[in-house]
Amino acid sequence: MGVLGPRETSPGRHETPEERSDRRWTELLQEVRVIQTGVQILFGFLLTVVFTPRFATLTPTDRAIYVTTVLLGAATTGALVGTVTFHRLVAGHRLKSETVLWASRLALVGIVLLLATVTSALLLILRIALHDSAVPWIVAGLVGWFMICWFALPAWILYRYSSKD
C-alpha cells in the first residue's frame, strides 16, 4: 500500500481535509434541518398546552412533568439551533474541521435531549389518557425502541462494517 497523496485523506474518498470538512458540515446542517422541524412542532405544541382549560385540572405531578417537558424542549431547541450559531460565530476563522466536530457534538446533545423531551411528553400524555399503571412500562418500551433506532443500530452498523485496520 502506497503513501496517500494530499487529496487522498481516506481510502474511500479523494478529498482534501477542507473538502471533507465542507462535506461533513453540509451533511450535519441537513440532518439538523430535518430534526429541528420536528422539535419546533413539538415545542410549539407544548407551549400551547398551558393555555388550555384542561391544564388547570392537572395534578401537581402532571404539572411537574409538563414543566420538565417544556424545559427539556427548550434545551433541545437551544442545542440544535446552537449548531448553526456555532458555525456563524466561528465562520471565517479557518476552523471548519473544529466547527464540524463541536457542532456535531452539540447536535448529539440535542438528540439526547430530544429523547428526554419525547419521553417526558409521552409520560405526561399517557398518564392523562390512560390512567393506568402500565404507562411507565409503555413509555419504557418506547424509549427502548428509540434507543435501538437512534443509538444501538448505528453503533452496531459501525462496529459490524468498520474496517478492522
Rank of each mutant, 00 (worst) to 15 (best):
T59A: 12
G5E: 09
W145H: 05
T16R: 12
A75M: 13
G12D: 14
G38P: 03
L29V: 08
V100L: 04
T77G: 15
P11G: 10
L108T: 14
S10C: 06
S104F: 09
L101G: 05
A107N: 08
L126T: 01
L72C: 08
D22K: 13
A152S: 07
K164A: 08
A134E: 06
F45S: 02
V70W: 05
W137R: 10
L80S: 07
A121D: 07
V32G: 02
I157C: 04
I138Q: 02
L113R: 00
T117V: 04
L124T: 03
I35K: 01
L123G: 00
G82F: 06
V3L: 13
A140D: 06
L142A: 07
V135E: 00
L113Y: 02
S162D: 08
T77Q: 11
W156E: 11
L123V: 00
P6G: 04
Y66G: 08
L89G: 04
G110P: 02
F45N: 01
I125T: 09
A129L: 15
P6E: 05
A134C: 03
P53Q: 03
T69A: 14
C149W: 10
T99Y: 00
R63C: 00
V67Q: 05
R33F: 12
A107K: 02
A75T: 08
R33Q: 14
P136N: 05
Y66S: 04
L114H: 00
R20S: 10
A134K: 09
Y66D: 00
V135M: 04
A155W: 04
V81G: 03
I41V: 13
I157N: 07
V49Q: 06
A107W: 02
R105P: 01
V143G: 03
V39F: 06
G2N: 14
A79D: 04
G44M: 06
W25F: 13
V109P: 02
P154E: 09
Q40A: 13
L28V: 04
Y159T: 05
H14E: 11
W102A: 15
D22R: 15
L72I: 10
E15R: 09
W156L: 15
T119F: 10
W102F: 14
F146V: 08
L113F: 12
L113T: 01
W150R: 12
G82K: 02
T16M: 05
I111S: 06
W25G: 00
T37D: 03
F86M: 12
F55D: 11
T37K: 00
S120G: 06
K164M: 07
V50R: 13
A134T: 10
T85V: 14
V49H: 01
I35A: 15
M1E: 11
L101V: 10
S120C: 03
R54E: 15
T9L: 12
G12F: 10
L72M: 12
I125D: 02
V3G: 11
L123W: 15
L58N: 05
P154I: 09
S10Q: 11
E8T: 01
R24K: 09
V3D: 11
M147A: 15
L29I: 06
V109C: 10
S133P: 07
I111M: 12
A134L: 11
S163H: 12
Q36Y: 06
T16V: 05
L114I: 03
H131R: 11
V3A: 15
T117F: 02
V81S: 08
V135L: 03
L4T: 08
R160G: 00
G110A: 06
R54K: 14
G141H: 05
V139I: 01
I157G: 00
V84W: 13
V112S: 03
L47Y: 03
T52I: 03
